[in-house]
């Protein structure tokens, strides 16, 4: 169902420990992880065009495991159609939203993905009554909707930086909203609500390097 594929392997030096050196060996912090997640399906019931309010479970994602989760607590970000919720703040008020019980935050940075290498100095917003931390709607947050092609495109140069529920940092570049991430999606035939994104996660608490 969900595939994990590794795009970038962070080069980490692996020390093969010898018994003699055990005492002196430096304790290396866990390495920064760079991954691509493909085809996270984020369905929605109702919503725009159906005449009824949006509802349905969000698809939750946990940076620590790098996987989709159904846990009510161990998640950082969650997807439902174009909306992205974070595990921090309070519910915005739409139906079936997950309860926020962490301290996640989100910031939007305009730059290339590689150039954003620190979460330092950013202001992190949290979900609030009536508003997601990552604003919904075309040209507000992470995507642009083209009326002519009926296509939702991630805004180039938009990097989503997250503080996770437990104080780690991650940056995300959304690559596609369509199944199998076609280069040029077709708004009427390609299946939407499938997220493919690249992310970098720093598992060290409080470390803002990305």
């Amino acid at each position: 169902m969900k595939k994990l594929s590794f795009l970038f392997f962070t080069l980490t030096l692996t020390f093969i420990s010898c018994s003699d050196d055990d005492d002196n060996a430096p304790v290396l912090p866990p390495a920064i992880e760079s991954k691509q997640i493909t085809n996270i399906f984020a369905p929605q019931i109702g919503g725009p065009g159906s005449g009824q309010d949006a509802s349905g479970e969000f698809t939750k994602f946990d940076f620590k495991t790098g996987e989709v989760t159904t846990s009510d607590t161990d998640w950082d970000i969650a997807f439902r159609a174009t909306a992205i919720a974070i595990n921090g703040g309070v519910v915005t008020g739409s139906a079936d939203e997950p309860i926020r019980n962490g301290n996640a935050g989100a910031a939007i940075v305009e730059n290339t993905f590689a150039s954003v290498n620190s979460a330092d100095g950013l202001t992190f917003n949290q979900d609030a009554d009536g508003a997601f931390a990552i604003p919904t709607g075309s040209d507000n947050g992470w995507y642009n909707y083209n009326f002519m092609t009926n296509v939702v495109s991630p805004i180039p140069g938009t990097v989503l930086v997250f503080r996770t529920r437990d104080g780690r940092y991650a940056k995300v570049q959304i690559a596609s909203y369509y199944k199998d991430a076609p280069t040029t999606p077709n708004g009427s035939t390609d299946e939407s609500r499938y997220y493919t994104f690249n992310y970098v996660y720093n598992p060290n608490e409080g470390d803002k390097n990305l």
Binding site: E110, N111, T112, P156, G157, T158, T183, T184
Partner: peptide, 15 residues
Amino acid sequence: NGKFARDPLTGQDIR
């Protein structure tokens, strides 16, 4: 002031 595009071949954003 800084605008970006996504290279369709590499998926990378470019200033």
